[in-house]
Simulated assay, not measured.
Amino acid sequence: MSKYSEAEALFQELQQQQITVDFLVNNAGYGLFGEFTETDLQDELSMIDINIKALTTLTKLFLPGMKQRRNGKILNVASTAAFQPGPLMAVYYATKACVLSFSEALENEMKGNGVTVTALCPGPTKTGFESRANLGQSKLFKSGVMDVERVANIGYEGLMKGKSIVIPGFKNRLLANSIRFIPRKWVTATVRNVQEKS
């Protein structure tokens, strides 16, 4: 659902059926591996459409009703990629940084309105993402991945508790929180190293 018209059509259909949406999960997205000068522009623009535009559009359509009813929860799936630049996946990492920033801003705006916004930031997870992104042979995915059911359960628990950011897994939380203390060039070089294929 990357086009505004498709999101609008879904919203209008639910309105016509008088279905109230109190929970919105924005989970669609994909990645693309490779140097920016060599990857396909259309593939990257489509990624921006799905990872950012569709998520923003659906939130824009459903959030006002939640605010008016003073009841609602939104879960936006970001990534641990949101916390640093990502050489060899530059556009993907940038889209997830946008999702995290957007979610944190909305969480602040909704305080006192009965609505919470949660950013779920998983690390490598066995979902098929690595195949679509051509990352199956990367050091990142060879170093271990989390089970999708476990990630989903942790995300759900965080959503229901109204947490603003949920990072499943101790290693992922440690990584995301330690990055701010490390020089940015080191972080970028390390990310490139783990993304490269072994």
Rank of each mutant, 00 (worst) to 15 (best):
Q42V: 00
E107M: 11
Y93L: 01
L175F: 14
V187N: 03
K3Y: 12
L159Y: 10
L100P: 12
R69N: 11
I74C: 03
S198Y: 10
G72N: 06
P64W: 07
F33K: 01
C98M: 08
K163V: 02
G128A: 08
T56F: 14
A97G: 15
S138F: 00
A9P: 04
S2H: 11
K171R: 13
P183T: 03
F36H: 01
T59Q: 05
P64V: 09
N108E: 13
I52F: 07
T95S: 14
F83I: 11
Q16H: 07
L106K: 08
T125C: 14
L61I: 10
Q17W: 01
G112R: 12
L14Y: 06
D22I: 01
D49F: 02
S198Q: 12
P87R: 00
S143A: 15
P124G: 13
L32P: 00
S2M: 09
G114F: 03
S198C: 02
P183V: 03
E13N: 07
L106C: 09
I74F: 02
M110F: 10
A189S: 12
W186D: 01
I154C: 05
R192E: 13
L159V: 09
E149H: 11
F170W: 14
T116G: 08
P122H: 13
Q12K: 12
K3T: 14
K53W: 08
V151E: 04
K142C: 02
P122G: 13
P183N: 04
V99S: 07
C121T: 06
Y30D: 08
E157W: 05
L175Q: 11
A119H: 06
I182Q: 05
E44Q: 01
E6M: 12
G34R: 00
R70W: 02
V117K: 02
N177F: 12
V148C: 10
R70N: 09
R192W: 01
N134Y: 01
Y92P: 02
G155K: 04
R69K: 13
L45K: 07
G65V: 00
S46L: 10
F129H: 03
R173Q: 15
F102N: 06
L58G: 04
L140W: 03
T190D: 06
T118V: 05
N76C: 06
L32I: 08
L24E: 06
N27W: 07
L41K: 04
V77T: 14
N193Q: 11
D40A: 01
N108R: 15
S143T: 08
T125A: 09
T56S: 13
A133Y: 04
G31Q: 07
I154A: 10
Y92W: 03
R150Q: 14
S198H: 09
G144P: 06
G31Y: 06
S46K: 12
T37C: 09
L14S: 10
K139C: 01
M89E: 14
S178Q: 04
A90R: 01
L100Y: 11
A82K: 11
I48N: 00
T95R: 09
E149C: 03
N153G: 04
I182R: 05
M89I: 05
C98E: 05
Q18C: 05
T39H: 00
I19V: 14
N153D: 13
I167T: 15
K185V: 02
E44V: 00
N193Y: 14
N27P: 08
S131T: 14
K126C: 03
N26E: 11
E107P: 00
T56C: 11
Q68K: 15
P87S: 00
M160D: 06
A82I: 09
T118C: 15
I154G: 04
K67R: 15
A189G: 06
N153C: 05
